[in-house]
Nucleic acid binder design. Structure first.
Lengths: 339, 339
DNA sequence: CTGTTAGCGCCTTCAG
DNA sequence: CTGAAGGCGCTAACAG
């Protein structure tokens, strides 16, 4: 029914091994025989069975990509870029989308990727248990993070420094009451919110501004959460004149909260995000940009290199730069405000 | 090194066949033996090699999902929902992200999914050649479309009717000069823009409004394209008083164009989109909603059912409803305008 | 340069 | 209910 390597071999009048060698571009086959086999294989519509060749060779030509939520802009963009790099190199990608706790548990207990992938790119690793589970796969690993992680190739921005730039921008504009929308209590205990908060605290301290816990709100890294968080901040007795949202999506939610309160950025309150989301420009949102697709492609490339040169030392930690993008949501504090 | 089924068999004092049966929950194994084997397998950290079991059984427990751009909100959201359904059912998903023409060509010439998947969900099928290539895989197929497609389970909205609702809303508000931002000349010749344009023309004709080609602009289904398209429409001698954007992302671009021209929706011009993008609410965009994640989950479920009951008749064409979501970007035409 | 010989690890008969 | 035998389709030595 389905055409196999022996069918091609028979039709071409050679042995199966020769077909295998010819089609995979290995040397040791005369040019004319190779050409012949190529033609015959095409005629028959032959494609090698990945299962069979994986079983025989031990290689899968497949890379596992673990994503928290493909639907989220950041992860979708990273995945898009990474898949392009893997696909161009002849690798298929197995996607594990671990949005729900059940999916996450299922993945880490059953480890469906075991023996199925040559490498894994995990965009998010919650804790050391998950890291260990991944390490137990015995394949090259990459992840996104703000710090090095043993056994992983790590790509990421300096979250703390990025947050510092954001808050410093607000301080430079003359703001003293600066709020923050973060994500500490989200379902995922990853370190990004912690590092970004640290950057916020750093700059406040530097500028001699006392830290007011009432000016911190949790936006859970979602649009809706950002809206709620901004609403909270507006209800504080003495509201902030500027707010740093740890992600653009939360900043967008914050923008909506302002609109609902008949307020505007930057007239009533300044707002800065972090990411440079594709819609940040549409909204005129001032933000700290990070190269999202670029990081995905870079992580993919580093993983491929490890596959090609298993002996070379793993790359370790690659940090990519962020930069301030001035748009329309930040300005000096309004003079009439009570400050 | 890596633990195989014979290792488990030896450790449990049974044969490999018994281990295979026990672990896959097939009957014909006594409860106590099964329990024992389960324990031993867990201890040893055994996971069956998918390559080997696929080779032996002919089933892959894998579903291929073909996506034009994972990074785009619509496709990312659909993929997210579909992956959750597949994953919960014990299937892995192989992702083929065909954003570039090269990736597309590579996929359709090499057919890397052949012999690797039990079914395929292709979010976009350009033409009959691609459809035929997919059919040649000999597995259950599903896709998103506005019309039935032989050999595929099709899920989708009624694009024409959806567009009609959008334009009818504008007509009902009293608009007579109604522009449209579409996507006919995009790189992908899929039929969505055609169907939505038809809906636009239908309502104009119904309302006795002559069709003015100058009021149609191409936004290529991207944010940037939407911005350019709206800019074009504003430059027309007698600009529209209302605009229907065939997608929310184009509508968002249009909103930005308005802002840059110091104009506002709905004060200067009414705007309606189609999708109900996650950020449409943030922007207050009036739109026609379609259940995006819902459609992804539905397509996945239908595919799984075909896998479980191969004899049942394939579901054919499932059409899901759209509905008008009134927000802040549409209003009756401004009285002072030259009408 | 090419063919032959063994498996890769598992599932599926077929016996018992 | 369980074990033994064979083979899925391919690749990797090893001979020629």
């Amino acid at each position: 029914m389905t055409v196999s390597i022996t069918d091609v071999a028979r039709a071409a009048g050679v042995s199966a091994s020769t077909v295998s060698r010819a089609l995979r571009g290995r040397q040791g086959v005369s040019d004319e025989v190779r050409a012949q086999i190529t033609v015959v294989a095409a005629q028959l519509g032959y494609t090698a069975s990945r299962s069979a060749s994986s079983l025989a060779s031990g290689r899968t030509s497949t890379i596992g990509v673990v994503v928290p939520f493909v639907g989220r802009w950041f992860f979708g963009t990273v995945l898009d870029a990474a898949e392009n790099v893997f696909g161009a190199a002849g690798y298929d990608v197995l996607l594990y989308n671990l949005g729900s706790p059940e999916a996450r548990t299922r993945f880490f207990t059953q480890m469906p990727a075991r023996k199925r992938v040559d490498a894994v790119l995990s965009l998010l690793v919650h804790d050391e248990d998950e890291a260990d589970a991944l390490r137990s796969l015995g394949v090259p690993l990459a992840t996104f993070w703000t710090a090095p992680r043993p056994g992983f190739t790590v790509v990421g921005i300096d979250d703390r420094a990025g947050a510092q730039s954001a808050v410093r921008h607000l301080v430079n504009l003359g703001h003293r009451r600066i709020g923050m929308i973060g994500g500490t209590s989200g379902p995922l205990h990853w370190t990004t919110p912690v590092a970004r908060r640290q950057g916020y605290l750093d700059v406040l301290a530097d500028a001699g501004i006392p830290h007011d816990p009432a000016l911190e709100a949790d936006g859970g890294y979602t649009v809706g959460g950002g809206e709620r968080a901004m609403t909270e901040l507006l209800a504080v007795p003495r509201p902030p004149t500027a707010v740093f949202a740890q992600s653009d999506e939360m900043a967008m939610g914050a923008l909506r909260a302002l609109r609902l309160h008949r307020m505007k950025a930057p007239d009533d309150i300044s707002l800065i995000g972090l990411d440079d989301h594709e819609l940040a420009e549409v909204l005129g949102l001032t933000t700290i940009a990070q190269p999202v697709a670029g990081q995905g492609a870079e992580a993919a490339r580093l993983l491929l290199r490890q596959l090609q040169e298993p002996d070379a030392a793993p790359p370790g930690h690659v940090q990519v730069p962020t930069r301030l993008i001035l748009r329309d949501t930040t300005a000096p504090p309004h003079p009439r405000g009570p400050q």
